[in-house]
Amino acid sequence: MDDRVILRVGAKFLIPFILLFALYVQFHGDYGPGGGFQAGVIFAAAFVLYALVYGLPNAERAMPPRVVYICSALGVVIYAGVGVVTLLKGANFLDYGVLAHDPEHGQHYGILFVELGVLTTVFGVMVTVFYAFAGRGRKDG
């Protein structure tokens, strides 16, 4: 188990950085490559790493399947919800311009929220899918 210790310590050290990096990718998407999708994948990668090192049950305790399941549905709701808000404000669907007084600011907010929706769903789906696959493997193994 000794080699595992190194792994675990390493992982513990790494995971916060991965999460931080994900946030960077999310919010830096406006200026450089990246965005909700990539951030979601990296976010999910952190938990996949956690599960690989600490085992699936521990990962499921840290990030319950129920939560990631809700996340995967929630992201779609957030994305489409932004569109519905713009509708309610009297503009076309997903016309972010009305989200603020200044259309450019509106676009900013809109993109921020929809990217958040993408992040949520992608993170949720990736972890869900990983749990499903890993769960099958465990039962068979």
Partner: peptide, 9 residues
Amino acid sequence: LLAAPLAAL
């Protein structure tokens, strides 16, 4: 499209 995640939730 919104109903789908709702049904899942």
